[in-house]
Amino acid sequence: MLHTLEVVTTVIVGLMVGVELSVAFIMNRILNALPEDSGQLGHAHGGRMLGAVMPVWYIGSLVLVAACGIAGRHHHGDGLVIAAAVLLLLSVVMSVLLLVPINNRGKTWTPGNRPEDWKQQLNRWERWHYARVTVLVAAFAVLVAGLT
């Protein structure tokens, strides 16, 4: 049963990290290269779509990693699994405090109602997202090291 939990956790967390890497290094670049207002509208749509899914994915991943840490306590690598949980918790805190407020504003923007500094706010979101992705990649690497 523990092995199944570890495999499911690795897949769920790994997919989440992959999605966030894709947003950072592929989707944002595509959206930023679109002409006129298309990029801003794409960012708003992505904010609505991923804004609905990612909270469940983040919390679910944290719960799964915590469950692996509890179920696998006194096993090889349990300290690394706990470290991964701490890093995932940090990513959740970063999201709530730094990224979600910007996303909540940005997902409602249209070319007619966006603020003057919308590009600066979007750039700030992207910088925080790079930091969060770094934390997520570290969490995933530590998790895999702890489970293998």
Rank of each mutant, 00 (worst) to 15 (best):
E20A: 12
L21F: 13
L21P: 12
S22P: 10
F25G: 10
I26M: 03
I26G: 05
M27S: 07
R29T: 02
R29S: 03
L31N: 07
L31K: 00
A33T: 02
L34F: 07
L41S: 05
H45P: 01
G46L: 01
G47S: 14
R48L: 06
G51M: 01
G51A: 09
V56I: 08
W57I: 14
G60Y: 13
S61A: 06
V63I: 08
V65Q: 13
A67M: 09
A67F: 11
G69W: 11
G69S: 12
G69K: 05
A71F: 12
H76C: 08
G77E: 02
D78G: 14
G79H: 13
I82S: 09
A85Y: 07
A85R: 00
A85C: 02
V86I: 10
L87E: 04
M94E: 12
L97A: 15
L97R: 14
L98D: 12
L98A: 11
L99P: 07
V100W: 02
P101W: 02
N103R: 07
N104S: 07
R105W: 12
K107R: 11
P111L: 00
P111A: 04
G112V: 01
N113W: 06
R114D: 07
R114T: 02
R124Q: 12
E126P: 13
R127H: 13
A131W: 10
R132C: 01
V133F: 07
T134E: 11
T134W: 14
